[in-house]
Design a protein around this nucleic acid. Sequence first.
DNA 1: CGCCAATGGCTCGCAGACATACCTTTGGAG
DNA 2: CTCCAAAGGTATGTCTGCGAGCCATTGGCG
Lengths: 231, 231
Amino acid sequence: MEHAEEALFRPVRAGNAFEETVERLMQAIRLGVVAPGERLPSERELATRLGVSRVTVREAIRSLQENNYVESRRGRYGGTFVNDVIPKSAPGKELGDIHDALTLRKVLETGAAEAAAGRSLGSAERRGLRVRLEEASTATLAEYRRKDSRLHLAIAEATGSASLTAAVAESRMRVNELLDTIPLLEPNLAHSNAQHEHIIASILDGDPAAARQAMAEHLDGTASLLRGFLV
Amino acid sequence: MEHAEEALFRPVRAGNAFEETVERLMQAIRLGVVAPGERLPSERELATRLGVSRVTVREAIRSLQENNYVESRRGRYGGTFVNDVIPKSAPGKELGDIHDALTLRKVLETGAAEAAAGRSLGSAERRGLRVRLEEASTATLAEYRRKDSRLHLAIAEATGSASLTAAVAESRMRVNELLDTIPLLEPNLAHSNAQHEHIIASILDGDPAAARQAMAEHLDGTASLLRGFLV
DNA sequence: CGCCAATGGCTCGCAGACATACCTTTGGAG
DNA sequence: CTCCAAAGGTATGTCTGCGAGCCATTGGCG
């Protein structure tokens, strides 16, 4: 019953500033918001936007460098660039987390699809969705996870709710970590692309029920797969 | 387009530890998780569960005392007790936040209702839902907001997803803050109670679609009201 | 009646994070 | 060729928050 208390009296800070900052940068990289070869915002800009000191940003970046996620170059037009090869993590997840993560993901992403379909989207937003769809459909197996995340984030953005977008990003990060623990996952790209097209078409058509339905089917694939592998 | 970056590069900490702690305790009080007259967990226990030092917990409690939310008594069987009269806040919200908050709430709460209906609930969970429903249905106008929140949190708990419950709690807190800026909001209790019964019945019947639909209708009332008042 | 357990009240030193300033490197603009 | 803007690299003093310990108060139990 009173596990509402557990939710409300959970730790106020997920970790220290350094760990939180690393986590954010990792999200940006793993979700493909900053693609391999691209540059992260400058240290000073990151410090401002993340609300931490530049010292902390630098420590976080150093940690990423040591794990070969990024490289930094000095001088004007320098910066910190995302590497092509991204090492894998193998944390070993709690099994109880799976239901939690998948439940939250389904709620957020089907809700986002429905909400996006229920809005009157501007031409820029419509174009953005089509571009992301195209990117995902032409992705190689290696790129798939990242391009997929970018498409799903674009859908969340199309709701116009920043906090919903943030929640989707965090949720995807959690699920991706779970997926990373399954080494031999080869998604059926053709099938997934067809589902993506269906989702985006429903959103662009302004059909919320269809968008929700399509997203639910899309998510169920990885969900049952994860449940099967990890339970 | 790239406001996925805005989501990912948002500040890593919402505020300092003190402010976050105050916020949490306020949530627990305003959402009725700890009712007037009841005792908060001890300072030592709060410090452990919130992941902050006892000094910080004490500063937060002192702040609540000064604003007359709680009173502390020393000695064994002492503690910090929630006051009956709870002062109002008048922060003055950003208008742009409304869409954001309402979009997220709808996604989370309709999704939670659907997910709860899709689970096989234990007898304890089913009883808990009925108890909360009964409490809400017999609430006076003064108690309504709190009892309503407890019922909605119970629905989120019934999904078995702790992070979904936490997200719903935070979302409700945001929306309640918005509702607080409308002084003369008198909810139609009879109407709301009927909707609650419909939602809970659908969940207990194991009808996800009906539960979602009922929750959506329930939320639309306050949503349109808020949009009307604050836009 | 006295003990004592559990609570809130208080203090002090340490570690982490911060703000700020300055240095070094780099490549384009003039 | 020189200058300089913009980026990463470094150093320092301050302050917040934490941990740990102790004190003060209270009310039930023996």
